[in-house]
Amino acid sequence: MAKPKPARAPKPDPAEGQKRSPMRRGMDTLIFRTMAPYLTALMVLFSVFVLLRGHNQPGGGFIGGLIAASAFAILGIAQGVSAVRRALWFDPTAIAAAGLTVSTLAGLMSLAADVPFMTALWVFPNIFGTEVALSTPMLFDIGVYLVVTGAITTVALALEEREDD
């Protein structure tokens, strides 16, 4: 697994655009490059919202993860892979692995409560006067979200990556 490459200023070389793929060339507009970080941030925020509402309304970890992965794919197309790696901080494969760990742990927690594996556990703590529903299925869903985000971002970034990137 490649480590995130060190931060590097975009190349000033005007000929750079010529070497890039047709897709990158086509997308390489000023407006897109400027807007992409905001779009990505919005999409990631939206993905978390979709993840959390999933238990009662359309949404959930799978869809949330797909949205987040598209967000990072867009950022990658607009600003290059190294920008995404810097923004993500963690390697996408590590995110996927962490998600799998979280989901497995969510299942294993029920063993500690002496019920079969993957039995849902719920608590309803009262935080600042609001009853908040916390559960192992929610934790599990967060794991799903991280796996989907991590795995698809891994693929997308690897495909976007070029030797000159």
Binding site: P58, G61, G107, A120, F140, D141, G143
Partner: peptide, 23 residues
Amino acid sequence: AHGTNVVNVIIVDFRGTDTLGEI
């Protein structure tokens, strides 16, 4: 399962072990 989105409840709770395999 305290959830009204049946699809999601199936994914993360009723058939959670399947999902674990899938992810």
